[in-house]
Simulated assay, not measured.
Amino acid sequence: MALAEAGYDIGITWYGDAAGADRTATEVRASGRRCETAALDPDPAPRGGDGHRRAGRPARRPGVLVNNAAPAWPSPFVDVSWEKWREVLAVDLDGPFLCSQRAARRMRAAGRGGRIISITSVHEHAPRVGSSAYCAAKGGLGLLTKVMAQELAADGITVNAVAPGEIATPMTGQEDVDPFTPRNRPGVPVGRPGDAREVAAVVAMLASPPRRT
């Protein structure tokens, strides 16, 4: 919705929640922007980037790509199975690699620049007990973002990562929590979790076209 309000037509990929994607699409269309949805298995295998291509049809060419899929599945390092390790890495690192690569190729071919934005995590930088696969994937995505930024800058394509801390969402078990109600949050200076709209505002700012002075 933040990107729609900024004037973008939207493509949404979804996994496991078609109704949620439809609700969001309805909101986007009500704001006056076009929106399409496409199912996308977040465990990419070689074909995983195809969903973003279908969902990108409203704009005909991708102006902005936001990578935002991220399961965590906390477990002690010694208990993490190879299958679960690969599942987390596939969704949190392989998927953004494939989607970003395909989007960058289309942006480069169009010759009009673009924006690639990945939602990483504070755990891109800070370790967390029980999150070995998640931290490894987010750390890898953070460095991948920096390499892409270097390589694509000459094409007018900016690449950035947004690394939130604890956000009041279903992923943290706080879907119905008012994030602006002060609580005792040891280690969190503001004393509350973040609000998803705060993250969205940063994404919208990074997606905005460059200003000429």
Score class of each variant (00 low, 15 high):
residue 151 E to K: 07
residue 75 S to V: 15
residue 188 V to H: 12
residue 86 R to K: 10
residue 155 D to W: 14
residue 200 A to L: 09
residue 76 P to V: 07
residue 178 D to V: 07
residue 25 A to S: 13
residue 24 T to V: 13
residue 155 D to S: 15
residue 173 G to V: 03
residue 175 E to W: 10
residue 91 V to K: 00
residue 165 G to Y: 04
residue 138 K to S: 08
residue 189 P to I: 13
residue 201 A to I: 10
residue 32 G to Y: 07
residue 145 T to M: 01
residue 197 R to D: 15
residue 147 V to H: 11
residue 39 A to C: 02
residue 44 P to K: 13
residue 76 P to G: 03
residue 114 G to P: 01
residue 45 A to Q: 11
residue 88 V to Y: 02
residue 91 V to E: 04
residue 37 T to P: 08
residue 88 V to Q: 01
residue 90 A to C: 00
residue 213 T to D: 15
residue 97 F to G: 10
residue 185 R to Q: 14
residue 198 E to R: 02
residue 68 N to V: 14
residue 154 A to L: 09
residue 5 E to L: 05
residue 59 A to N: 06
residue 35 C to S: 09
residue 93 L to R: 06
residue 12 I to Q: 03
residue 88 V to E: 01
residue 180 F to E: 13
residue 185 R to V: 00
residue 95 G to V: 01
residue 147 V to K: 06
residue 26 T to C: 01
residue 130 G to T: 10
residue 136 A to W: 06
residue 185 R to H: 13
residue 175 E to I: 05
residue 185 R to E: 15
residue 156 G to Q: 11
residue 122 V to E: 13
residue 18 A to I: 09
residue 71 P to E: 12
residue 152 L to T: 10
residue 50 D to S: 07
residue 15 Y to P: 00
residue 60 R to L: 10
residue 206 L to S: 05
residue 94 D to M: 04
residue 111 G to A: 07
residue 11 G to N: 04
residue 107 M to C: 07
residue 138 K to H: 08
residue 63 G to Q: 11
residue 181 T to Y: 03
residue 70 A to N: 06
residue 198 E to P: 02
residue 127 P to E: 05
residue 140 G to M: 08
residue 57 R to F: 02
residue 89 L to S: 04
residue 147 V to L: 13
residue 153 A to S: 14
residue 77 F to H: 15
residue 65 L to V: 10
residue 98 L to F: 11
residue 152 L to Y: 14
residue 153 A to L: 13
residue 6 A to N: 02
residue 16 G to E: 03
residue 60 R to C: 04
residue 202 V to P: 07
residue 76 P to I: 05
residue 129 V to D: 14
residue 80 V to E: 11
residue 33 R to W: 00
residue 151 E to T: 06
residue 24 T to Q: 12
residue 49 G to R: 09
residue 162 V to D: 06
residue 61 R to Q: 11
residue 74 P to Q: 07
residue 168 A to W: 02
residue 74 P to C: 08
residue 161 A to L: 11
residue 150 Q to H: 15
residue 140 G to I: 08
residue 29 R to H: 03
residue 137 A to D: 02
residue 153 A to Y: 10
residue 156 G to I: 05
residue 14 W to F: 13
residue 153 A to W: 12
residue 207 A to K: 01
residue 97 F to V: 11
residue 150 Q to Y: 12
residue 160 N to S: 15
residue 123 H to A: 04
residue 122 V to F: 03
residue 78 V to G: 14
residue 115 R to P: 01
residue 150 Q to L: 15
residue 106 R to A: 15
residue 144 L to I: 09
residue 108 R to D: 10
residue 9 D to E: 03
residue 11 G to L: 03
residue 164 P to E: 03
residue 30 A to G: 11
residue 113 G to V: 08
